[in-house]
Nucleic acid binder design. Structure first.
Length: 812
RNA sequence: GCGGGCGUGGCGAAACUGGCAGACGCGCCAGAUUUAGGUUCUGGUUCUCGAAAGGGAGUGUAGGUUCAAGUCCUAUCGCCCGCACCA
């Protein structure tokens, strides 16, 4: 048969239309099948088409198709995309989300998402921009409010002047906004809504033990650090004169006899009364000087307050300082400085001439007192010069001294977390409105459940003035109080969109439920997620929030699982122009162009071929032609060999062996490593061999090989695979066909190739049947002419033989 | 400073359990087809000595273990990521 040229545009358009119009790929759920849940992408309002996600698409996509062909029920949030239609498709490609939030852009976005949510044929979709999704976000909020898990307080918050909104701690990167990396975050005092994620700090930490081995170690470590649990003691020093307590937190109460001053954070509340106005200004300057700077670059600075505090253990009077290295956000915002045993305290006290007094000695040495010491001394050992605790080991002293503080009422053992409650108030237009009403008489009143969802007004003006644009919409703001009926104001803050992503994957299981967020029975069927795929960049934001939400939903009785995802895979990012490809940077052009020029199959497969999925890749398109060429080679080979011609078949054995070896490699890789780059390489090898043996393959073998190639390509290049499937005389979707099984016997080589080494260097090879005895292999090796020349005049010391593999002759 | 990871051709990479380093692709070189270019097909392509056969060296660097090391161990240099005055 004459071959046809590979016309990707024709093929992709043809199947695009067929897939869109028919209910070709309608989800099919069968309780007798195993389930498999792939999640690889967050439904950010603007995230759908994001190039940074092309790797997710490709990985999760290929995996989902494979699992589907294996006979699993697959729930895949991208709906039909999972079964063929890539996001880079022309039909939706122009709906790139707007970068600047103008009214027009928001209108466009709503349109995009409406279309996205309703246009495809899979009934599990959900869009976080939809009113129904607002309803359930708000419903969760009210549940948390009932349980005291949501609360409002005036707090110093992170503020990005470019976003004109508040940011969560997790959204502050190097002191700057995560979306504007050059804009230092300011601190402002505002009334804010918080979720009490700290209630779950211990559980979030402890349950990580069960994720060990299933989640990347790196992610678990990051979460542990983020939660930052540390055990210590809270102790009240007393302000000299008034006796007012100054509570400090320390992990080393055993060193308290070495405390030579107390240091407060510059924003510590006590400063209000402690400092005169000149010093207050200096304290303010300290706070400002710290913003947006790398802690390593900031010199320690302090100011003596002129006041003193009394050590409750020793009764000693020590000076009170304020210093820029003490953080209000951690512990109590006040510390005792023990310069002899802490590096930072040491540096500070040396600078300001404050006494350094060791109280710990090594277990096997004396207490060293060197006036000119250059560094803090001996971490753990025996406590000395510490009243009744002298002579105890550090650890014992810590316990006993904590207990003492509690008995005497001036302190207690305490656990401190770095994790803070999650500030969710945003002054944006596009988040879920927080469903409460502020009534002058009744205070904060929740919106009754039957009035949900509170939806956003259409007519708004974006001011960027640092107040929610909703405040300028009277018909939104002015309401009557649900409790007393008097005039009241609606809350104008909206929720952090990380709320959406914290539970969206549950909603995928039951997207059209109008009674509840989802049906618990459906969740019980699908959850936990078997395999979650996402970028490392979510290690502490999304992946802590969603774990928190899961535990919260369990506690309100909706679900049974403690954790959202059993296994997590973090894929590498796509880097362009030295930076992570991201929608806020706008450096996301490449893949669209590539898909236009070479097609969706090529761009998808190219990304998979570039590197293993956990690795970062630099986005570059040189080399994409290689993939295009390969797909063309496959297609041309197919079309000139269908129907297959009658030929000798003398290469059948060889070709089928290669076929089954390839199939084995891909099958095993899908089960374990997902190194699709090598899968694709092995298909290329197979095709190269087909070209070489083309004239000697029988018709039956040809048909079998081509069908198997179509099936093997289906996860990677769905359009071409589908086209091949049709050319080979099959109806229906190629994904409906089960994944082919490899035959280990057919994959086996006839003979083993034995490598002959002399002193570890390759000198010859020979072929021998599998299982040839050692002695025979050695005899044949020694008889080899080449080997003889290298042994010439030397003594054989020993011979190491690994059957079917290697003979190493050691000579001297 | 603490924690994690990575260093392999001109480039992306492969080598999964210690057993042939560089699969596969890009790029480059040559040949065939073509009026030519492009496409396609075939062959070559780590470095180095050699006309060739063939030899030698080679996985950041220096040691070590082993019959055998890209892979294991020790030290060291470089790069990347995360955390960080966290008391």
């Amino acid at each position: 048969m004459p071959e046809k040229p590979y016309d990707h545009t024709h093929i992709e358009l043809k199947w695009h239309e067929r897939w869109q119009n028919a209910d070709f790929y309608k989800a099919e759920e069968n309780s007798s099948k195993p389930k498999f849940y792939v999640l690889e992408m967050l439904p950010y309002p603007s995230g759908m088409l994001h190039i940074g996600h092309i790797r997710n698409y490709s990985i999760g996509d290929a995996l989902a198709r494979y699992k589907w062909m294996q006979g699993f029920n697959v729930l895949h949030p991208m709906g039909w995309d999972a079964f063929g239609l890539p996001a880079e498709n022309a039909a939706i490609k122009n709906q790139r989300p707007p970068r600047e939030w103008t009214l027009d852009n928001i209108a466009a976005m709503k349109k995009t998402h409406r279309r996205f949510a309703f246009s495809y044929d899979w009934d599990r979709e959900v869009s976080t921009c939809e009113p129904e999704y607002y309803r359930w976000n708000q419903w969760f909020f009210l549940k948390m409010l009932e349980r005291g898990l949501a609360y409002r307080k005036r707090a110093l918050v992170n503020w990005c002047s470019k976003c004109a909104t508040v940011l969560a701690n997790e959204q502050v990167v190097d002191g700057c906004c995560w979306r504007h990396e050059d804009t230092p975050v300011e601190q402002r005092a505002l009334e804010q809504w918080f979720l009490k994620i700290t209630d779950y700090a211990d559980e979030l930490l402890d349950d990580m033990a069960g994720l060990e081995g299933e989640w990347p170690e790196r992610v678990l470590t990051m979460q542990r650090n983020w939660i930052g649990r540390s055990e210590g003691t809270e102790v009240d020093f007393h302000l000299e004169g008034t006796g007012e307590p100054i509570r400090v937190f320390t992990t080393r109460v055993d060193t308290i006899y070495g405390a030579t001053c107390v240091i407060l954070a510059p924003e510590h509340p006590l400063n209000e009364t402690l400092l005169d106005s000149g010093v207050k200004a200096q304290a303010k300057a300290m706070v400002d000087g710290r913003a947006g700077r790398d802690p390593g670059d900031i010199d320690k600075e302090g100011i003596f307050t002129g006041r003193y505090a009394v050590n409750p253990y020793s009764g000693e009077k020590v000076p009170i300082w304020i210093a820029n290295f003490v953080l209000m956000g951690y512990g109590t915002g006040a510390i005792m400085a023990v310069p002899a045993h802490d590096e930072r305290d040491f540096e500070f006290c040396r600078k300001y001439g404050i006494a350094v007094r060791p109280v710990i000695r090594p277990a096997d040495g004396p207490l060293a007192i060197e006036p000119g010491m250059k560094a803090p001394y001996c971490d753990y050992g025996i406590v000395e010069n510490s009243g009744q605790w002298s002579g105890l080991a550090s650890a014992d002293a810590r316990k006993q001294m904590s207990a003492h503080a509690e008995q005497q009422g001036f302190g207690k053992a305490a656990i401190t977390y770095r994790l803070k409650d999650w500030g969710i108030s945003r002054q944006r237009y596009w988040g879920t409105p927080i469903p409460v009403i502020h009534c002058p008489k009744c205070g904060v009143v929740p919106v009754p459940e039957n009035q949900l969802p509170v939806i956003l007004p259409d007519r708004i003006e974006i001011t960027g003035a640092g107040r929610s644009p909703l405040e300028n919409v009277p018909e939104f703001v002015n309401v009557t109080c649900p409790a007393c009926g008097e005039a009241a104001r609606r809350e104008t803050d909206t929720m952090d969109t990380f709320i959406d992503s914290s539970w969206y994957f549950y909603r995928y299981c039951d997207a059209h439920n109008s009674e509840r967020p989802f049906d618990p029975e459906k969740i019980a069927y699908w959850f936990e997620i078997d395999q979650y795929i996402g970028g490392v960049e979510h290690a502490i934001l999304h992946l802590i929030y969603s774990r928190f939400f899961t535990k919260m939903m369990r506690d309100i009785g909706l679900i049974k699982n403690d954790e959202p995802a059993r296994r997590l895979f973090t894929q590498g990012m796509v880097i362009a122009e030295g930076a992570k490809m991201s929608k806020s940077k706008g450096n996301v052009v490449g893949a669209d162009v590539l898909a236009d020029q070479l097609g969706a199959d090529t761009s998808r497969m190219f990304v998979l071929f570039a590197a293993p999925p956990e690795k970062e890749v630099d986005w570059r398109t040189e080399g994409a032609e290689g993939i295009y060429r390969f797909l063309g080679r496959v297609y041309r080979f197919l079309t000139r060999n269908t129907p297959a011609e009658a030929r000798s078949g003398e290469s059948d054995r060889k070709v089928l062996r290669k076929l089954h070896q390839t199939l084995r490699k891909i099958t095993e890789d899908f089960e374990t490593r997902w190194h699709f780059n090598t899968c694709i390489a092995s298909i290329m090898e197979l095709v190269n061999q087909l070209y070489a043996e083309e004239q000697n393959i029988s018709a039956a073998a040809m048909q079998q090989v081509l069908e198997t190639i179509a099936l093997m390509l289906a996860p990677f290049a769905p359009y071409l695979a589908q086209e091949m499937w049709e050319e080979l005389g099959h109806d229906g979707p190629v994904f409906r066909h089960s994944w082919p099984t490899f035959d280990a016997e057919l994959a086996k080589e006839d003979e083993a190739e034995i490598v002959i080494q002399v002193n570890g260097k390759l000198r010859a090879r020979l072929s021998a049947p599998f299982g040839t005895p050692k002695e025979e292999l050695e005899a044949r090796a020694l008889a080899d002419e080449k080997v003889k020349t290298f042994m010439d005049g030397k003594q054989i010391v020993k011979i190491i033989t690994v059957p079917d593999k290697i003979v190493n002759i050691v000579v001297r």
